[in-house]
Each structure stands twice: as C-alpha cells, then as structure tokens.
Design a protein around this nucleic acid. Structure first.
Lengths: 241, 241
DNA sequence: AAGTGGTCTAGACCACCCT
DNA sequence: GGGTGGTCTAGACCACTTC
C-alpha cells in the first residue's frame, strides 16, 4: 500500500500506538535499530519519526530516545482537514446529512471576495445541515469553483464530496486555512438548525487550495455552541531565536 | 544567531516573505541553486524549505518549483504557542494585564485531574485579566507545578511568565495540546471581565509539557465571544492511504 | 532532454544522557 | 565511554513538468 519506506514506518507506528500495542511512555527502539529492522538508512527512519513527532504521537529526547505520548487521538475534530463523514464515523454516533441546496450559480458578491474571483465566474453552492443524535447542530455552506468540478448532485453532497473530488475527479487537495470565530446567529441558522435560545454560533471559515495553489473552495461551517470542539497539538517553534 | 545552516535559510526566507521582499506567487530559486548559494548540500536546503512549507510560507510543486503563498501571517492568534504579550505587541494596540492572584497552594481537586497529580502536590495559581482597548476581554487562569518553579511574583505575572520560565528558570517548553470549546459564563467571568449581556464564553484549555514530557502547566484562557479568533494552517496529511 | 522536487544511501561529526 | 538523537554531506535514482 505504502511504497515509501518512511511512510511504511510511520503507519506501522501510528497503528501500534493507536491500538494500544505501544502504550504511553514506552521507549521506541533507537533510530539505528529501526533502520536495521527495515533494512534502510537512519535518515529515512528519522523522516518517519519526525512525522510521528509533529503529529503528537511521540516525543524525541536527545541523548535518551523517542517516547510514546498520551495525547488522546480520539478527540472530536483533530486539527487538519477532516470531513464530517470521517468525524461521525470516528464518533460512532447516529449522524445524518440533510442537503438543502446543490446548485450552480454565478458567484455571490460576498463569496467572490472570499474566493478572490469575479462575480461572473460560476460556483457550485452546497448547503447541508448535519444532524447528530436527532438534532441539527452544524450548517455547512460550501462554494466550489465550477471550472474545476464537472458535475455535482444532491446524492454526492449527501455522501462525501471530498471522496468524489479526490476519487472521481482526481483533484489533489494541498492545504487549507481555517479561521474560527463566534458570531451572531443568522435567520438562516435559525431556520435550518435546532438552536433553541442561542444568540451566537461558532463559525469556521475554511479556505481550501489545490496542488497548483488555486483557491477552489470556500466553506462556512456553522456549529451550535455546545457541539463545537477543536483540538490542536503544537510543538514549540523550531528555527527561532 | 542561528548556528544551524537550515534555520539560517529558514529565517532568511521568512523575513523576506514577511517584509514583502518576496511577494505572493514568486518562484524561489531551485533547491540546487539555494544549496550552492549557501555552500551547503541539497538535503539541508530541503529541510529549511520543508519547514517553510509546513508553516504556510511556501508551497512546493514537483517538477516546477517552490512558490510563495499569500497566507496572511499577521492574523490574530496564529496557531501554536504564542503568549498574550507577543500577541498584543503584534497587534500594536494598547493592552494591559491585571493580576488578581499569584499564590502557591495545594492543588485544587479539579485542577489536579487536569494536571494528573494528587491534591497533596503544590501549584502556583495565577489569575490575570487581559485588557485591550479599555475593555477586560480575556481571563487567564494558570496553574504551574510548584516543584519546577522556584518563585513567582505579581511583577513577573504582569510581565511575561514565559520569558521568566524560559529565561531565568531555563525551562524548556516542548509541546502543548489545546482544546477549544464554548461554555456558560461563570460568576468569576462576570466579576473580572466586561461581558455585558453575554451568556457564553470561549474556553481554551492548554496543556503544556516540558522537554522531559512532564505536564507542568494547565491554563484556562477564557475569551469574550466577540474578541476570540483562532487561525489554523494545515496541509493534507502525508503518509496516508 | 533538461530542470525540478521526492526519496534514499552510507557515511561523518556533534551535543547530550547515563553509567 | 557508549548510546542516543541532531545536523550535514555528496552522491544516486525517480517522477514530474516544460521545452
């Protein structure tokens, strides 16, 4: 599956750590030992261990070794590009998606600013409410550049747009910027979500870029206050001071 | 200042990008050219460019080159371990810190759970309100393991605890986990902050670890809804599938 | 075919930790 | 002093883009 040696080492260890085979605090074999085990060079092992370290699986200590961390990998939305479908599967809770809109339109003015395009260009607009445990708690408003997406249907929107884009369209997503803030609820929020007496809502603005750096998607993910959680793992900056 | 070649290359390019000398979309010299320029090997250059790529400065495209991204580096709280002082300086706005408590106490029960210690161990408790533009909008409640911190004063708390810890105490901070959620306001929030009619508040729980992996600090940073913003840059996961 | 970034090698020296 | 991770080298081959 993984043709690269370093990613094979990486997935081997993430699996062992996630399944509990390697428990918190356990010391990994030394880089030289792992290199021998995989019949590869030490630099290749270091590449894999660096990735594990960046993603919060292990911590490396000079002169001592690499140790498994206890960061809980099962948290709600792990930092990064994770779709709603992956999330609900991870949670194992009854979850549903209600597709309200799947239309191709000239880009609305406010969205054109976000996507840095003109109002003449066309976009796909998808509006979906996410229901968890019988309550509609998340409203996703997606806008995709129509020029890079041939077709889009309510069926695809109900399933996973990302699987469709990366699979059938073979688009390659490269990076994204998220902005999280809290704003006043809109009339649309009230209409499409179960908000009760809430006056505010968490808004996650997501700007998604392709491999060639084009900004092709802008998403507003609007979460009911009590159902929002975000987890972030960060290392002290390298190469500073 | 930077003795490592790769971090020298890294800071050279972050500065050129941040000052606008290298503008969005500009193509960097090839890895071979940069290696020649710095009289070093290509792998060392690649290490620096990888860091730039991870931190959202550039994007690398196989067969083409590396390009400067337009991710706005001046956003409010950039993902990572950034102190309030760094933030307010970056914003350039009038900011003040009001120190309410700086005491050494046996660890309260609820905090002992967060810090994974017993209630017999002692902790430093620091409570500070952050004022921006004449309004108290952030409440920071910090708890530090007393065993690793000799002394703490209101003066240090008013200045920068991190500068004190990393400078005078030469503690080395390694990594941290953040959890962001929205909760009901507490009586303490109402007393120490200017909340108006707000019923909710953004809570950022921060678990900070040292180089030897000990969890030595737990912080609850409580932000007024309208003053909270979080930005996150993420690349599509490597080494998956 | 030439140039680019992605992966990998087989060494080297260093800084740090432990005994 | 022996083991560990951190940095660096001078090559190599590959996949991809551009001409």
């Amino acid at each position: 599956m993984n043709k690269n040696i370093f990613s094979q080492i990486y997935t081997d260890y993430t699996q062992r750590i996630e399944t509990g085979l390697l428990k918190t605090g356990i010391k990994l074999p030394s880089e030289n030992e792992i290199a021998e085990e995989y019949a590869t060079s030490r630099e290749t092992v270091r590449k894999a261990l660096h990735l594990l370290s960046q993603n919060g699986y292990i911590h490396k200590i000079r002169g001592k070794g690499s140790y498994v961390l206890d960061i809980n990998r099962m948290e709600f939305p792990i930092s990064g590009l994770v779709s709603f479908k992956e999330l609900s599967e991870r949670l194992g809770r009854p979850a549903r998606t209600l597709v309200h809109e799947t239309i191709r339109i000239p880009c609305p003015q406010n969205v054109a600013r976000q996507l840095q395009i003109t109002e003449q260009e066309e976009v796909w607009k998808v509006v979906r409410a996410r229901e968890i445990e019988e309550e509609k708690v998340i409203l996703d408003k997606d806008y995709f550049l129509a020029s890079v997406i041939p077709a889009l249907t309510a069926e695809i929107a109900a399933d996973s747009i990302y699987a469709y884009l990366e699979g059938d369209c073979s688009l390659k997503i490269a990076y994204a910027k998220k902005e999280i803030s809290v704003e006043k609820v809109s009339a649309e929020d009230k209409r499409l979500l179960d908000l009760g007496r809430d006056t505010h809502i968490v808004v996650v603005r997501n700007y998604v870029h392709l491999e060639d750096t084009t900004l092709f998607q802008y998403t507003e993910s609007r979460h009911r206050l009590d159902k929002f959680q975000f987890v972030d793992f960060a290392r002290r900056a390298v190469a500073e001071e």
